[in-house]
């Protein structure tokens, strides 16, 4: 295990990039997801159709292929990304579809009576959305969103395929230099597990804060 301890800085650097990628992709993905979910309720049929198509295509194709499309395929059309940029873009687009579905599920779970009450009080649509619908949706979906974030942290490991120096890649580079395969891979696995456990606990804590009084 000495090799691991001697190179903690390397692992830390990789982990930092992993978390940065996951955070960016999650924030971006949330925005995309929200817009997509709202688009599904738009009056214009082509807008709705576009949103549905986007979600279905992303959810039925592998993330690695999506990454290849962004990093290797788009340059054919003149759009070039760095490996890191491509990873974040691909993961953002990927996330957006899943977040859209999570939001859609949350919206459907709101009892119709809430909308009736808001309407009966004369609340305009926008106010009802902001004050009644979205806060309740958020409280319903935050566990699923937390899980989605953790999945994104794990998914960021595909960055190794295009050379992004996130956690998996730095570990593999170290392994190819030192040949301490078992120690490094075990450490890599345990680091991911520790991170996901900690993140899960943190998000549960935040979730309770949000749920206070409500449940």
């Amino acid at each position: 295990m000495a090799v691991v301890l001697d190179n903690l800085g390397v692992f830390a650097g990789g982990l930092a990039l992993t978390l940065l990628v996951a955070l960016s992709a999650s924030l971006g993905g949330s925005v995309v997801g929200l817009l997509t979910a709202l688009s599904r309720m738009a009056p214009a049929a082509p807008v709705r159709w576009l949103a549905v198509t986007y979600v279905e295509v992303i959810r039925n194709t592998p993330g690695l292929v999506q990454l290849f499309l962004v990093y290797l395929g788009l340059p054919n059309l003149g759009i070039r990304f760095s490996p890191l940029g491509a990873l974040i873009v691909a993961l953002t687009v990927n996330n957006g579809a899943y977040v859209a579905e999570i939001i859609r599920g949350g919206l459907q779970a709101i009892p119709k009576g809430q909308l009736d009450a808001a309407a009966a009080l004369g609340l305009p649509r926008r106010v009802a959305l902001a004050e009644v619908v979205l806060p309740q949706t958020l409280r319903a979906i935050h566990p699923a969103l937390a899980n989605q974030f953790i999945q994104t942290v794990l998914a960021s490991s595909i960055g190794t395929v295009v050379g992004v120096e996130e956690l998996t890649q730095v570990a593999l580079i170290l392994e190819s230099r030192t040949y301490q395969t078992v120690e490094i891979l075990v450490a890599l696995t345990l680091i991911y597990v520790a991170v996901t456990v900690l993140l899960a606990a943190l998000m549960r804590r935040l979730g309770h804060r949000l749920d206070r009084g409500y449940r």
């Binding site: 009892p111 009966a120 009080l121």
Partner: peptide, 19 residues
């Protein structure tokens, strides 16, 4: 909205905003 400002409604399942 103008009509609804004059008419108040109470529902079977209360429909209070839980949050």
């Amino acid at each position: 909205a103008k009509v609804r400002a004059e008419v108040g409604m109470v529902f079977q399942h209360f429909n209070l905003f839980p949050h």
